[in-house]
Design a protein around this nucleic acid. Structure first.
Length: 225
DNA sequence: AACCAGGACGTGA
DNA sequence: TCACGTCATGGT
C-alpha cells in the first residue's frame, strides 16, 4: 500500500504538473497543456491573475457539479458570448436567458438559482477572501465546491476531495470505503505537505488519473467488460 | 443505447 | 447522522 506522498509523486511523474484551474482563455500567457479549452497554466501558480479569472473559476466550480467538464466549457463560452461571465453580466440576464446559456452543463434550473445566490454573496464579500463557512452558507455550495473555490479561485491552502479521491484512495486501501468527506480531507492533509502547489496539483492529478483509469467501474470493465 | 460525469439538496428513517 | 431520490445535458 503506497503512502499519500508516494501516490502524489507517482502521479506527478506520470502526468506532470496539471496547472489547474482550467480557464477559457489565457491571452497573453503561455499555456503548456492543450485540452478541449485553450490550455492549462502548467507550472504557473499565480492564477487567477484578474478578478474576471477569479469569478470564472467560481462559476465553473458550480457548473461542474456532477457534470463533465466539456459540458461546463460550453456553458462558460455561452456566458462569455453574452458578456455575462461577470457579476454584473449575470445579473443583467433574465432567468430564461441564463437558463438557456448554461443549459449544456445540465441541472439548469437548480444551477440558475445557484448562480444567482452565489453572485449575491460574491458581491457582499467584495475583495475579502470568503471563509469556508461563508461559502458553505451559500445555497448550492457544498464542501467540494467551497474547497475548490478557496483553493483555485482564492489561492488558499484548502484540500479538495471529490468522488475520484474517494474511489482511488479507497481502492488503494488508504481510506475506508465509507469514509466521509471530512475523513478523507483529514487523511489527505495529514499525509501531504501543506503548501498551495501540492494541494492544487494533488487534486488535479487525481482527476487526470481517474479520467484515464478510474471510470465508475474500472475493475468490472476490466474483468467482465 | 445504456451509462456516466470534478455534487448538493430535501426528505424520511 | 445517513441512505436515498432528484435534478438534466452531452459524450462514449
Amino acid at each position: 500500500m503506497p503512502t499519500l506522498r508516494q501516490l502524489y509523486h507517482r502521479l506527478l511523474d506520470a502526468y506532470g504538473p496539471q496547472g489547474w484551474w482550467p480557464l477559457l482563455d489565457y491571452a497573453g500567457t503561455n499555456p503548456t497543456k492543450t485540452g478541449s479549452i485553450t490550455g492549462y497554466h502548467c507550472g504557473l501558480y499565480d492564477f487567477p491573475r484578474t478578478p474576471a479569472q477569479r469569478f470564472e473559476i467560481c462559476i465553473g466550480a458550480i457548473l461542474t457539479q456532477n457534470t463533465a467538464w466539456p459540458n461546463v466549457e460550453q456553458a462558460l463560452r455561452s456566458l462569455a458570448g453574452l458578456h455575462a461571465l461577470s457579476p454584473d453580466g449575470i445579473d443583467g440576464l433574465d432567468d430564461e436567458t441564463l437558463r438557456q446559456a448554461i443549459r449544456p452543463s445540465g441541472y439548469f434550473n437548480a444551477k440558475t438559482r445557484k448562480l444567482r445566490e452565489f453572485v449575491r454573496n460574491y458581491r457582499h464579500w467584495g475583495e475579502r477572501v470568503p471563509t469556508r463557512r461563508e461559502l458553505l452558507a451559500v445555497w448550492g455550495v457544498g464542501p467540494e465546491t467551497a474547497d475548490s473555490i478557496r483553493l483555485y479561485a482564492y489561492g488558499q491552502v484548502e484540500m479538495v476531495i471529490d468522488a475520484y479521491t474517494h474511489r482511488i484512495l479507497g481502492h488503494l486501501g488508504l481510506v475506508d470505503a465509507k469514509a466521509s468527506y471530512d475523513d478523507l480531507k483529514a487523511t489527505c492533509i495529514a499525509g501531504l505537505p501543506g503548501d498551495l502547489v501540492t494541494y492544487q496539483e494533488f487534486h488535479a492529478l487525481l482527476v487526470e488519473h481517474a479520467k484515464r483509469h478510474y471510470r465508475r467501474r474500472p475493475w468490472i470493465d476490466g474483468l467482465f467488460g
